[in-house]
């Protein structure tokens, strides 16, 4: 019964992935890719990975899809040459290569399926009480492997820096607003976006949630507001934006350095304030992730405060 559901899901994922690469037009490919992200979120749900499903729905499908859509509006139509059919001997060669590569993959797959590991779940659950936080995944992210999460924020920050240093390409299109329903929708929904982001941050302590989905929801709210005509200073080169974007990594690094000065090991939270510190980091990270994603979305546009 459950297997029928999963098999249907898997087949649809494979088909959409194929479409996402080989669909006739770029637009079709991007739509298929977005729908693929939606289905893979369902697959995470089926694998009991609700945390990942949440992040995939917010970041993997939602924000990535919006980025791709925005990029499509700036790209020229795909040249016909790029869609030319390949010659038969190249196809044959590719097929041969595929068969050669298939053998080790099949072997590896067989090996993977034979694995008899028990994972680290028991260990994590055993030390959960020391972490002063309810959710095992959040404990791993913010306590046991906190340096990974710090570096992850730094990766996102460097992405923003790279995109900014490439410079703007186009003035933001569209001074003309198509429908009066759009600003009304935004006025109605923006508080809901803020509320949901706050709720996800709060949930992250003892269940699926946390800074990354919350940041993505926050960013979605900002993007929606700016696309429907709200005035905001252009992110590039604005001091307030820069401060908000750096807030998360800075707070994280300051906590890590602070405990070092207080006589603990790097990233070893003092047990009495561990929960408090982690909540602080989570909030700072959530806010700056929201602003970073918004900056990534609008980076290619010169200035949307004077227009829109």
């Amino acid at each position: 019964m459950a297997l029928v559901f999963d098999a249907l899901l898997a087949l649809a994922m494979l088909w959409l992935a194929w479409q996402g690469v080989h669909a006739q037009t770029l637009f079709q490919a991007v739509v298929s890719f977005m729908l693929f992200g939606l289905l893979i979120a369902l697959a995470w749900v089926r694998l009991d990975a609700t945390d990942i499903a949440l992040a995939e729905a917010a970041l993997g499908s939602g924000v990535t899809g919006a980025l791709l859509f925005a990029a499509l509006g700036q790209l020229p139509p795909e040249p016909i040459r790029a869609r030319r059919r390949t010659r038969w001997h190249r196809r044959l060669l590719a097929l041969a290569w595929g068969l050669v590569l298939l053998a080790p993959i099949a072997l590896l797959l067989y090996g993977v399926l034979q694995l008899e590991g028990r994972g680290l779940g028991a260990e994590v659950n055993a030390s959960l009480s020391q972490a002063n936080i309810g959710s095992p995944v959040t404990a791993v992210l913010l306590n046991f492997r906190a340096i990974d999460t710090l570096l992850e924020l730094v990766v996102m920050l460097s992405a923003v820096v790279v995109v900014w240093s490439l410079g703007a390409t186009a003035p933001s299109p569209l001074p003309w607003l198509p429908a009066p329903s759009l600003p009304a929708l935004t006025r109605l929904l923006f508080p809901v976006f803020l509320l949901t982001a706050g709720y996800l941050l709060w949930r992250g302590e003892h269940g699926p949630g946390g800074a990354f989905p919350a940041g993505a929801v926050l960013a979605a709210g900002f993007v929606l507001a700016i696309l429907s005509g709200a005035r905001a200073p252009a992110p590039d080169g604005h001091t307030g934006w820069r401060l908000l974007i750096c807030l998360g990594p800075l707070a994280f690094a300051m906590v890590a350095g602070g405990v070092l000065l207080a006589g603990y090991v790097y990233f070893e939270y003092p047990p009495r304030v561990a929960g408090l510190l982690m909540i602080g980091i989570e909030i700072a990270a959530g806010i700056s992730i929201g602003f970073m994603l918004t900056a990534l979305f609008f980076a290619a546009e010169r200035d949307h405060s004077s227009q829109v």
């Binding site: 198509p178 429908a179 329903s181 759009l182 009304a184 929708l185 109605l188 929904l189 809901v192």
Partner: peptide, 12 residues
């Protein structure tokens, strides 16, 4: 949410 969003996005 779905009601509001669905109606607006259809009109858009």
């Amino acid at each position: 949410l779905v009601m509001v969003a669905g109606a607006t996005s259809s009109s858009l």
